[in-house]
Protein backbone atom coordinates (compact mmCIF):
# COMPACT_ATOMS: atom_id res chain seq x y z
CA UNK A 1 0.00 0.00 0.00
CA UNK A 2 1.31 3.42 -0.96
CA UNK A 3 2.36 5.95 1.67
CA UNK A 4 0.09 8.92 2.29
CA UNK A 5 2.62 11.36 0.80
CA UNK A 6 2.88 9.18 -2.29
CA UNK A 7 -0.92 9.05 -2.62
CA UNK A 8 -1.21 12.83 -2.31
CA UNK A 9 1.52 13.43 -4.88
CA UNK A 10 -0.09 10.89 -7.23
CA UNK A 11 -3.49 12.58 -6.84
CA UNK A 12 -1.89 15.95 -7.56
CA UNK A 13 -0.68 14.47 -10.87
CA UNK A 14 -4.25 13.19 -11.42
CA UNK A 15 -2.94 9.64 -11.52
CA UNK A 16 -5.94 7.31 -11.50
CA UNK A 17 -4.08 4.64 -9.48
CA UNK A 18 -3.52 6.99 -6.57
CA UNK A 19 -7.01 8.43 -6.79
CA UNK A 20 -8.32 4.87 -6.37
CA UNK A 21 -6.01 4.35 -3.43
CA UNK A 22 -7.19 7.53 -1.71
CA UNK A 23 -10.80 6.49 -2.25
CA UNK A 24 -10.18 3.03 -0.81
CA UNK A 25 -8.46 4.47 2.23
CA UNK A 26 -10.75 7.35 3.19
CA UNK A 27 -14.16 7.00 1.54
CA UNK A 28 -15.73 4.94 4.34
CA UNK A 29 -14.68 7.42 7.02
CA UNK A 30 -16.00 10.32 4.94
CA UNK A 31 -19.23 8.46 4.21
CA UNK A 32 -19.81 8.06 7.96
CA UNK A 33 -19.41 11.81 8.31
CA UNK A 34 -21.85 12.43 5.43
CA UNK A 35 -24.44 10.13 7.00
CA UNK A 36 -24.39 12.26 10.14
CA UNK A 37 -24.83 15.53 8.27
CA UNK A 38 -27.64 14.45 5.98
CA UNK A 39 -31.16 13.13 6.34
CA UNK A 40 -30.88 10.02 4.21
CA UNK A 41 -28.39 7.59 2.74
CA UNK A 42 -29.06 8.87 -0.78
CA UNK A 43 -28.36 12.43 0.26
CA UNK A 44 -25.18 11.26 2.03
CA UNK A 45 -24.02 9.55 -1.18
CA UNK A 46 -24.57 12.77 -3.13
CA UNK A 47 -22.63 14.83 -0.59
CA UNK A 48 -19.79 12.29 -0.50
CA UNK A 49 -19.60 12.30 -4.28
CA UNK A 50 -19.46 16.10 -4.46
CA UNK A 51 -16.98 16.22 -1.60
CA UNK A 52 -14.62 13.71 -3.21
CA UNK A 53 -14.71 15.60 -6.50
CA UNK A 54 -13.75 18.77 -4.61
CA UNK A 55 -10.97 16.89 -2.80
CA UNK A 56 -9.50 15.54 -6.06
CA UNK A 57 -9.78 18.92 -7.76
CA UNK A 58 -8.27 20.98 -4.95
CA UNK A 59 -5.68 18.54 -3.67
CA UNK A 60 -3.05 20.67 -5.40
CA UNK A 61 -3.66 23.39 -2.81
CA UNK A 62 -3.15 21.04 0.16
CA UNK A 63 0.03 21.68 2.13
CA UNK A 64 1.64 18.78 3.96
CA UNK A 65 1.96 20.76 7.19
CA UNK A 66 -1.73 20.25 8.04
CA UNK A 67 -3.57 17.03 8.81
CA UNK A 68 -4.73 15.50 5.53
CA UNK A 69 -7.69 13.77 7.15
CA UNK A 70 -8.75 17.00 8.82
CA UNK A 71 -8.43 18.84 5.51
CA UNK A 72 -10.67 16.28 3.79
CA UNK A 73 -13.21 16.34 6.60
CA UNK A 74 -13.47 20.13 6.37
CA UNK A 75 -14.11 19.90 2.63
CA UNK A 76 -16.83 17.30 3.09
CA UNK A 77 -18.44 19.25 5.96
CA UNK A 78 -18.43 22.40 3.83
CA UNK A 79 -20.02 20.39 1.01
CA UNK A 80 -22.72 19.19 3.40
CA UNK A 81 -23.34 22.78 4.52
CA UNK A 82 -23.60 23.93 0.89
CA UNK A 83 -26.02 21.08 0.28
CA UNK A 84 -28.05 22.18 3.31
CA UNK A 85 -28.13 25.79 2.06
CA UNK A 86 -29.43 24.66 -1.31
CA UNK A 87 -32.38 23.07 0.47
CA UNK A 88 -32.72 25.87 3.01
CA UNK A 89 -36.28 26.77 2.00
CA UNK A 90 -37.59 23.34 2.95
CA UNK A 91 -35.35 23.14 6.00
CA UNK A 92 -36.71 26.41 7.42
CA UNK A 93 -40.27 25.17 7.12
CA UNK A 94 -39.29 21.97 8.91
CA UNK A 95 -37.51 23.84 11.72
CA UNK A 96 -40.66 25.76 12.57
CA UNK A 97 -42.68 22.56 12.64
CA UNK A 98 -40.22 20.64 14.72
CA UNK A 99 -39.68 23.41 17.30
CA UNK A 100 -43.17 22.97 18.68
CA UNK A 101 -42.18 19.55 20.08
CA UNK A 102 -39.29 20.86 22.10
CA UNK A 103 -41.06 21.88 25.26
CA UNK A 104 -40.73 18.49 26.96
CA UNK A 105 -38.15 18.35 29.70
CA UNK A 106 -36.23 15.08 29.80
CA UNK A 107 -33.35 13.85 31.91
CA UNK A 108 -29.79 14.12 30.62
CA UNK A 109 -28.64 10.86 32.13
CA UNK A 110 -28.53 8.31 29.37
CA UNK A 111 -26.23 5.39 29.69
CA UNK A 112 -24.73 3.86 26.56
CA UNK A 113 -27.80 1.77 25.93
CA UNK A 114 -28.23 2.82 22.31
CA UNK A 115 -26.54 1.39 19.28
CA UNK A 116 -24.72 3.54 16.73
CA UNK A 117 -27.56 2.95 14.22
CA UNK A 118 -30.16 4.14 16.73
CA UNK A 119 -28.18 7.27 17.49
CA UNK A 120 -27.68 7.90 13.78
CA UNK A 121 -31.41 7.52 13.21
CA UNK A 122 -32.30 10.13 15.83
CA UNK A 123 -29.64 12.51 14.48
CA UNK A 124 -31.08 12.08 11.00
CA UNK A 125 -34.50 13.05 12.34
CA UNK A 126 -33.19 16.41 13.56
CA UNK A 127 -34.08 19.48 11.53
CA UNK A 128 -31.19 20.34 9.17
CA UNK A 129 -29.99 23.42 11.04
CA UNK A 130 -29.93 21.65 14.42
CA UNK A 131 -28.21 18.63 12.96
CA UNK A 132 -25.37 20.62 11.45
CA UNK A 133 -24.70 22.62 14.61
CA UNK A 134 -24.96 19.49 16.76
CA UNK A 135 -22.51 17.53 14.60
CA UNK A 136 -20.06 20.39 14.32
CA UNK A 137 -20.07 21.09 18.04
CA UNK A 138 -20.43 17.63 19.55
CA UNK A 139 -18.67 15.27 17.14
CA UNK A 140 -16.24 17.52 15.25
CA UNK A 141 -15.43 19.68 18.26
CA UNK A 142 -15.89 23.13 16.68
CA UNK A 143 -16.48 26.09 19.02
CA UNK A 144 -19.65 28.18 18.74
CA UNK A 145 -17.62 31.08 17.37
CA UNK A 146 -16.23 28.91 14.57
CA UNK A 147 -19.66 27.45 13.83
CA UNK A 148 -21.18 30.92 13.66
CA UNK A 149 -18.48 32.04 11.22
CA UNK A 150 -18.75 28.98 9.01
CA UNK A 151 -22.55 29.02 8.90
CA UNK A 152 -22.84 32.81 8.84
CA UNK A 153 -25.08 32.89 11.91
CA UNK A 154 -24.96 34.59 15.29
CA UNK A 155 -23.11 32.83 18.13
CA UNK A 156 -26.31 32.86 20.18
CA UNK A 157 -28.17 31.21 17.31
CA UNK A 158 -25.57 28.47 17.27
CA UNK A 159 -25.95 28.00 21.03
CA UNK A 160 -29.73 27.94 20.93
CA UNK A 161 -29.75 25.49 18.01
CA UNK A 162 -27.47 23.17 19.92
CA UNK A 163 -29.69 23.44 22.98
CA UNK A 164 -32.78 22.66 20.94
CA UNK A 165 -31.05 19.80 19.19
CA UNK A 166 -30.11 18.34 22.54
CA UNK A 167 -33.67 18.59 23.85
CA UNK A 168 -35.01 17.01 20.71
CA UNK A 169 -32.52 14.15 20.92
CA UNK A 170 -33.23 13.57 24.61
CA UNK A 171 -36.91 13.35 23.89
CA UNK A 172 -36.42 10.95 21.01
CA UNK A 173 -34.01 8.77 22.96
CA UNK A 174 -36.39 8.62 25.89
CA UNK A 175 -39.14 7.41 23.58
CA UNK A 176 -36.75 4.89 22.08
CA UNK A 177 -35.73 3.77 25.53
CA UNK A 178 -39.37 3.08 26.42
CA UNK A 179 -39.86 1.10 23.22
CA UNK A 180 -36.72 -0.94 23.91
CA UNK A 181 -37.99 -1.82 27.37
Amino acid sequence: MAELREIIEGCKRKDRRYQDELYRKYSAMLFGLCLRYTKSREEAEDVLQEGLVKIYKSIGSYSMSNSFEGWMRRIVINTAITHYRKNLKHAYHEDITEMSHNSVSTPDDFSNEFSREELLNVINKLPDGYRIVFNMYVVEGYKHKEISEILGIDINTSKSQLSRAKKYLQRELELLSKINL
Partner: peptide, 24 residues
Protein backbone atom coordinates in the same frame (compact mmCIF):
# COMPACT_ATOMS: atom_id res chain seq x y z
CA UNK B 1 -24.82 13.12 26.79
CA UNK B 2 -22.53 14.53 24.12
CA UNK B 3 -19.81 12.02 24.97
CA UNK B 4 -22.22 9.22 24.20
CA UNK B 5 -22.51 10.50 20.60
CA UNK B 6 -18.80 11.23 20.31
CA UNK B 7 -17.86 7.71 21.33
CA UNK B 8 -20.49 6.09 19.14
CA UNK B 9 -19.32 7.84 15.99
CA UNK B 10 -15.62 7.51 16.67
CA UNK B 11 -14.20 5.43 13.82
CA UNK B 12 -17.61 5.15 12.15
CA UNK B 13 -16.80 3.88 8.64
CA UNK B 14 -19.79 2.34 6.88
CA UNK B 15 -19.49 0.59 3.55
CA UNK B 16 -19.69 2.94 0.59
CA UNK B 17 -21.84 1.93 -2.40
CA UNK B 18 -19.81 1.35 -5.57
CA UNK B 19 -21.93 3.82 -7.50
CA UNK B 20 -20.35 6.71 -5.58
CA UNK B 21 -16.88 6.25 -7.03
CA UNK B 22 -18.26 5.67 -10.52
CA UNK B 23 -20.06 9.02 -10.17
CA UNK B 24 -16.89 10.69 -8.91
Amino acid sequence: FFEMFRESFDGFSPEVPGSVYAGV
